[in-house]
Nucleic acid binder design. Structure first.
Lengths: 117, 117
DNA sequence: CAGTATCCAAAGGGATACTG
DNA sequence: CAGTATCCCTTTGGATACTG
């Protein structure tokens, strides 16, 4: 007798994948990270109006908090008048770079693939 | 005078990233793909009960249709009694492998990072 | 400027039962 | 076995206005 398919809940890869998705899945997190990669440190206003097109302040605020809680971005209040706030990637955020690069590569290839359908 | 920050809507990377996310974001798509990578061709029942823990038939059905529409999986009806259906990754699905690997790697590292908080 | 508050619509997803 | 159908709840996200 043979147990043919193992249950993936007990699988480490599946577990790690689900962890990653729980944090990063959704419409905005990767876009924010990419924007910070490309432009470096940015202010709330810049993320809102320029680099992450279409996001609203409420959503951006919430996404940035999630990223901060998970040690992927740092929030810095600047001594300016009026006060400005800067967001920067942490060292740990480097770990997301391969994911983003792979997603972009897939997006590019997928576009041409679907076009030729 | 200097235009300091470009609008990312016109950026190819951001565009590709958003395309990829539109298709692959969510709780299940990557899990289904990973499961097919690990176990090879599988039947609906196996994906449902064994390899993708927790998904319901309605959702699995819908996710598989999405993946099929986007040329990532192939659906095959087998000549058995009762009828069975097999799902296999397409050649094009190889393009998602780097994303999944990167997500898993991130998930592993992120777990240890957050634990030590 | 950097958010929050409020309100609301749509999508995602789960439980359960049912069908060919 | 491989799905669909129905119902319903939660989450996500958008519009808009407001505050320190």
């Amino acid at each position: 007798m043979k147990t043919d398919v193992c249950i993936d809940t007990s699988n480490e890869n599946m577990r790690a994948l689900r962890d990653a998705l729980e944090l990063l899945s959704g419409k905005w997190k990767f876009c924010i990270l990419l924007s910070l990669y490309m432009h470096g440190t940015q202010r709330f206003k810049d993320l809102l109006a320029n680099s992450v097109g279409g996001i609203t302040p409420k959503v951006l605020s919430k996404e940035l908090q999630d990223l901060e809680d998970n040690l992927l971005v740092t929030r810095t209040v600047n001594n300016t008048k009026p006060v400005t706030v800067s967001y920067t990637l942490t060292e740990h955020a480097i770990e997301t770079q391969p994911v983003i690069n792979a997603l972009i590569a897939f997006g590019v290839k997928h576009r041409t693939k679907i076009k030729s359908k």
